[in-house]
């Protein structure tokens, strides 16, 4: 591993300054479960690493607010899976957090890190998409808020600019009677990256949203407001999902397999989401 400088700021302002170094060779560090892999195999070679874990404003909290749930940038996935509020209102997000890595990884890995790493296969992102989550970003020039859908641009690419930090991920409170479910497929059952992942959300009026991971350059959202999907389980109804996907062939799976599995997981998550929702077929 290449040597690098390490800084551990205690305020956001300090962090902004460190991270906006003009050479761009600075990386933010949360749990490090993605960053360290990159550092070790040489995929990234930052001059300096800025540890976010001791920033006062980024307390690792999950807080229920009016109309929303806020997850602080330093909250780790194990906190998510243990949170009563999330388990009750965002079961699909909890399901997705619960499959990331292993127990050890989940005690270290943050939700924000999973999102900011911008992997096409990031497991929590399809759920964040389906729940309509927003990302609160702060930087040298203030605060902005973008939807998760607009946050990830492509593989390893987000809208973050030099010096910017994600401080919070905000999930709107789902309408009562909403059901959602997450499923993924892997080559083995323990610790693996997704071949593909799907989150389906069904609201009480029958509107359906699918978040899909690992079948395109970034996780993406497909909405179906006409309730067409819900009224049928026939494979053709998932054509919209398949049409929007552009799966690749890699060491984990082939294009064909990924493509075919979209329908399988979509059907399964849809059935589970309907089951959990108050929506009834007219």
């Amino acid at each position: 591993m290449r040597a690098f400088d390490y800084a551990r700021p205690s305020t956001l302002v300090e962090a902004f300054e460190l991270l906006s170094a003009p050479d761009g060779g600075v990386k933010a560090l949360a749990g490090g479960t993605d960053l360290l892999v990159g550092l070790r195999n040489g995929a990234i070679r930052p001059r300096a690493v800025v540890d976010l874990k001791h920033i006062r404003e980024l307390a690792p909290v999950i807080r229920a607010d009016k109309e929303c749930m806020s997850i602080g940038a330093n909250a780790v996935l194990a906190q998510l899976t243990a949170s009563e509020g999330l388990r009750r209102d965002y079961p699909a997000l909890v399901e997705s957090a619960a499959v990331v890595g292993s127990v050890q990884i989940r005690h270290r890995a943050t939700l924000a890190g999973n999102l900011c790493n911008a992997s096409p296969a990031a497991d929590t992102v399809p759920a964040l998409l389906a729940y309509g989550a927003d990302v609160v970003i702060r930087g040298p020039s203030g605060e902005r808020r973008v939807s998760v859908d607009n946050f990830v641009l492509g593989p390893r690419e987000t809208v973050l600019t030099a010096g910017e930090i994600v401080t919070t991920i905000v999930l709107p409170t789902p309408k009562p009677g909403t059901g959602a479910a997450f499923a993924r497929l892997t080559r083995r059952r323990g610790v693996d990256l997704a071949i593909l992942s799907v989150c389906c959300l069904v609201d009480p009026e029958g509107e359906v949203r699918f978040g899909l991971g690992a079948v395109g350059p970034r996780p993406f959202l497909v909405r179906d407001s006409a309730a067409a999907v819900v009224s049928s389980t026939a494979a053709e109804q998932f054509a919209a999902l398949v049409a929007k996907a552009s799966p690749i062939t890699d060491v984990r799976a082939s294009h064909d397999y990924r493509q075919a599995m979209i329908t399988v997981l979509a059907r399964r998550t849809l059935a589970a989401a309907i089951e959990r929702s108050s929506w009834v077929s007219p």
Partner: peptide, 13 residues
Amino acid sequence: LGALDYRIPTTKD
């Protein structure tokens, strides 16, 4: 090459 993409059975398997 390496532990990320070469799969061996884990306790969950």
